[in-house]
Amino acid sequence: MATKKASKKSSKKSPSKKSTRSTSKKSRSASKKTSAKKSTARKSTSKKANKKSSSRKYGPSVGKNVEREMREMKRGKLKSGRSGKKVTSRKQAIAIGLSEARKAGKKVPPRKKS
């Protein structure tokens, strides 16, 4: 009940509080505007990352090679080149599919060198 009394008292003094509230709202909106300006500045610096290439990176037939290698891996028939061990990693199966597509001369970007 004490809160109700306090709210009644504050409602009587509302003209003086309204002026302080309106100024605080203005300062809040001003801070929002400045944060919006900062985010636009960040976006303009990362234009290179958003640049899209005009053509496909991988040819449509490359997906079939990768798909075939994934099936072999799931069945347990996919083996690595030199050692002949079974491939259990999904990433390794994709890498094998892409390298076979490169050897066949299909449209695949060059291998990343580390």
Score class of each variant (00 low, 15 high):
residue 113 K to M: 03
residue 41 A to Q: 14
residue 50 N to Y: 11
residue 99 S to D: 15
residue 49 A to H: 08
residue 111 R to Q: 14
residue 83 S to Y: 03
residue 87 V to G: 01
residue 62 V to E: 05
residue 109 P to T: 02
residue 91 K to Q: 11
residue 96 I to F: 09
residue 79 K to H: 08
residue 110 P to H: 04
residue 106 K to M: 11
residue 58 Y to K: 00
residue 17 K to Q: 04
residue 18 K to G: 12
residue 68 R to W: 07
residue 78 L to A: 01
residue 44 S to I: 03
residue 78 L to V: 06
residue 49 A to Y: 10
residue 17 K to F: 08
residue 105 G to Q: 07
residue 15 P to T: 10
residue 55 S to V: 12
residue 28 R to Y: 11
residue 18 K to W: 03
residue 74 K to M: 11
residue 74 K to H: 13
residue 45 T to F: 11
residue 25 K to L: 13
residue 100 E to K: 08
residue 31 S to T: 15
residue 84 G to L: 04
residue 8 K to D: 13
residue 67 E to F: 05
residue 31 S to Q: 10
residue 63 G to S: 02
residue 62 V to F: 03
residue 55 S to G: 15
residue 12 K to H: 07
residue 110 P to I: 02
residue 73 M to W: 08
residue 4 K to Q: 06
residue 107 K to D: 15
residue 90 R to N: 13
residue 60 P to R: 09
residue 21 R to Y: 13
residue 72 E to G: 06
residue 57 K to L: 07
residue 91 K to V: 13
residue 54 S to L: 07
residue 79 K to N: 04
residue 112 K to V: 13
residue 79 K to M: 11
residue 99 S to G: 06
residue 90 R to M: 10
residue 96 I to A: 03
residue 20 T to S: 12
residue 34 T to Q: 14
residue 103 K to G: 05
residue 81 G to Q: 14
residue 21 R to I: 08
residue 35 S to G: 10
residue 42 R to Y: 13
residue 106 K to W: 01
residue 27 S to D: 08
residue 112 K to W: 09
residue 6 A to Q: 13
residue 19 S to Q: 10
residue 54 S to E: 07
residue 56 R to G: 12
residue 6 A to L: 14
residue 94 I to M: 04
residue 56 R to T: 09
residue 78 L to D: 02
residue 99 S to K: 04
residue 23 T to N: 03
residue 62 V to G: 00
residue 22 S to D: 05
residue 59 G to D: 02
residue 49 A to V: 10
residue 59 G to T: 00
residue 29 S to F: 10
residue 34 T to G: 10
residue 79 K to A: 06
residue 15 P to W: 05
residue 94 I to S: 10
residue 28 R to F: 09
residue 82 R to A: 14
residue 11 S to C: 02
residue 4 K to R: 15
residue 108 V to R: 00
residue 111 R to L: 12
residue 42 R to W: 10
residue 53 S to C: 05
residue 70 M to F: 12
residue 31 S to E: 13
residue 31 S to M: 07
residue 80 S to I: 07
residue 22 S to M: 15
residue 87 V to C: 02
residue 66 V to L: 04
residue 107 K to M: 03
residue 85 K to P: 00
residue 97 G to I: 02
residue 13 K to V: 11
